[in-house]
Computed example of a mutant assay.
Amino acid sequence: MSLHLAKPIADFIEANARLDLDGMLTPFLPDAVFIDNGKHFEGQAAIRHLFEQEVIPVRAIFTPETVRDEDGHVVLEGPAHGDFTGSPIRFTYRFTLVNDAIKTLETTV
């Protein structure tokens, strides 16, 4: 199944599939906020650090299976797999877009 995603979200997902750190950051606004299971990372530098510590080393790749609009957010659901305990784990990714870029991304299990 092919999902139709807004360009910044599609770019993020594609970069994550390649574990391309710079590509994963490009769709985010400079003052974006990433909320990872309740922990807030504000700005691209903090988000980069999160990816360097939590995504790249364990090769965590999110594969969305569903997409829906919900109160102005784009919500994706699917598994993340990689070299971590419990892989694969199902996640929900909730994106807020502003000016064709990611303003917020909240992930929950």
Rank of each mutant, 00 (worst) to 15 (best):
S2Q: 13
L5Y: 01
K7L: 05
K7D: 10
P8K: 03
I9W: 07
I9Q: 07
I9N: 09
A10I: 01
A10P: 04
F12H: 13
F12Y: 14
I13W: 02
I13P: 08
A15L: 01
A17N: 14
A17Y: 04
R18T: 02
D20W: 02
L21T: 11
M24W: 01
M24D: 01
L25T: 01
T26H: 06
P27H: 01
F28E: 04
L29C: 02
L29Q: 13
P30Y: 03
D31L: 06
D31M: 05
D31W: 08
F34H: 12
I35S: 02
N37L: 08
N37Y: 08
G38V: 04
G38R: 04
G38Q: 08
K39F: 00
K39G: 00
K39R: 12
F41R: 07
E42I: 08
Q44E: 09
A46R: 12
R48M: 00
R48Q: 02
L50Y: 15
L50K: 14
L50M: 13
F51E: 00
F51L: 11
E52L: 07
E54D: 14
E54T: 11
E54M: 14
I56Y: 00
P57K: 05
V58N: 12
R59K: 15
F62D: 06
T63E: 13
P64Q: 07
T66R: 04
T66P: 11
R68A: 09
R68T: 12
D69P: 08
D69C: 07
E70Y: 15
E70A: 10
E70Q: 15
G72E: 05
H73S: 11
H73L: 11
V74Y: 11
V74W: 10
L76N: 10
E77G: 11
G78S: 06
P79R: 10
P79S: 08
P79M: 05
A80L: 07
A80D: 08
H81D: 13
G82E: 00
T85W: 07
T85K: 14
G86V: 04
G86E: 03
S87F: 01
P88V: 06
I89L: 05
R90S: 11
T92K: 14
Y93W: 10
Y93G: 06
R94K: 12
R94S: 06
R94C: 05
F95L: 04
F95A: 01
F95D: 03
L97Q: 07
N99E: 15
D100G: 02
D100V: 03
D100K: 04
A101K: 05
A101E: 04
A101Q: 12
I102E: 09
I102N: 08
K103Q: 13
K103V: 02
T104R: 12
T104E: 09
E106G: 15
T107C: 14
T108S: 15
V109M: 09
